Simulated assay, not measured.
Amino acid sequence: MRILRALFRPVALAATLIGGTAVCAPPSHAAEARKVIVDDDGSGIAEWMLLQAPNVDVLGITILSGDVWRDEGVAHALRAVEIAHRTDVPVLRGAVYPLLNSEKLTDRWEALYGKLVWKGAWMKKWVEPTVQSTPPYHAPDVVPHLPEGDPTIKASDEPAVMFMIRKVHEFPGQVTIIATGPMTDLALAQRLDPSFASLAKELVYMGGSLNPQQVRPDVAAAQFAREFANSPRREFNFRFDPEAASIVLRAPWRHIVAVPADPSTATELTPEFLHKLAAANPAFAGTISKREPGFPLWDEIAAAVWLDPSLIKHSEELYVDVNSQFGAGYGDTLSWTPGYQPDLDEQRETVVRTIDAPKLEAFITSLLARPLPSSPPK
């Protein structure tokens, strides 16, 4: 990482910037529900956090390929809303493939420039020994049986991209997009409707990497930070579809909050934390007990800082883009302090650098502990 100035801002500034208001805690029960669409490449605790949060209206969960293939991710999301008693929330199918990148191109890139630590749906094996298991490699249209049980409901027939466009037109200036996977869906939406980004309230995304410094060598999740020692600007969500990420980050959003990999390297889904989450609510216990430990809390941080900006310890204002040239830096994060950007439509972002990890765990636990609705809201 080579940032000319480290302009860390305290949480008070982050609270002012997120959502455009000085909010340092989840909204009160009297507040109007905050509208959000979750665009993800799987489904997990982050979705439950948003579904369980008070005064949050989850308009839909859109799923695209990334960590797993889209159809497998859709199955996980459908099962997640079933378990949460929130089958009123539609699950929609997004992009199966990146705009230009592919498994073959990634294999060619690795032959030229070295191995990637994580390749998501294209992952066949780890490069070096690791405590995390290797996810089963399969074709895009294969949906394996889920450890949490297969869903009994179906995804919406409406394409995810059309749903997102429709909703920002229906609720102009009110819909937050929380993107926790690659940005293919958002890029397609922006190309189909150039007013898409400007009609949304804000974009909160998990992606990119500046220079993670908070690696805890005593935790298994530190193994995910090995890549950053030599390639501090590389991160999976950007690397899976660099062209899409560049399109999205140069779109005219009213406000952007970035959660790069940086704060995640100080967190972990430990066996102890999983046990605490399982004990918080019997409805989630069966699924959580089957979760594999040893992974950072990537998506959970993005959901949490939107719900409660006081979790942010340090943030800074940067302009961000993604290297889309097919070379050694393909998919790497590009960033500039204000005034240094090339001014090719890059947008100013609030970039979260560190978070309060113990407070984050307590916040997640408190959300999951909330009672589930006896039946889906109408």
Rank of each mutant, 00 (worst) to 15 (best):
I165E: 12
V161W: 04
M164I: 06
A258K: 00
L50W: 00
L249K: 08
Q325L: 14
A221Y: 02
G19A: 05
Q341F: 09
A160F: 01
S195V: 07
H314K: 10
F238S: 01
P140V: 02
L4Q: 13
S324D: 12
K167R: 14
H76W: 15
L7P: 05
R108M: 07
S335Y: 15
R348N: 04
K290W: 05
A77Q: 06
T265Q: 14
T152K: 14
G19R: 04
V320P: 00
S324M: 05
A245D: 05
E103W: 03
L105G: 10
A220P: 06
P172Q: 11
R79I: 02
K201Q: 09
I312G: 01
S65Q: 09
F363W: 02
P10W: 04
T180S: 03
R108H: 08
K359V: 07
I177D: 00
P263R: 06
E361K: 04
D71N: 15
R233Q: 13
E227N: 11
R239I: 05
I355A: 01
W336P: 00
A189N: 00
D241L: 06
E202D: 11
E32D: 13
L64I: 08
V11W: 08
L249R: 08
K154F: 06
R2Y: 14
A15P: 02
Q52N: 10
L311H: 06
A278C: 09
K115H: 13
P212G: 04
E346S: 08
E346Q: 13
T21D: 15
A22F: 15
Y330C: 06
D40G: 02
I177L: 06
I61S: 00
V38P: 00
V56T: 12
A155F: 12
S264L: 09
K124W: 10
D356W: 01
T87M: 12
N211M: 15
D150Q: 06
D41K: 02
D241M: 06
A283C: 03
F284V: 02
P136W: 04
G44A: 03
T16R: 14
A328F: 13
S195R: 13
L112E: 12
D299S: 13
K104V: 09
H85P: 06
V259I: 12
G173P: 04
V219N: 01
I355C: 02
V257N: 06
P342V: 03
V215H: 07
T337E: 13
D262M: 12
P140L: 02
S374T: 10
Q325E: 14
L112S: 11
P232N: 11
P26I: 13
P129Q: 11
D71F: 14
G339E: 10
F8S: 15
W69R: 02
W122F: 11
D356C: 04
W126V: 03
T184C: 08
N101Q: 10
K201I: 02
A33E: 15
F8R: 11
H85C: 11
R234L: 15
W253H: 08
G114R: 04
L100I: 09
G19M: 05
K35C: 07
R239K: 11
A244K: 05
A46N: 03
N55P: 05
N55C: 14
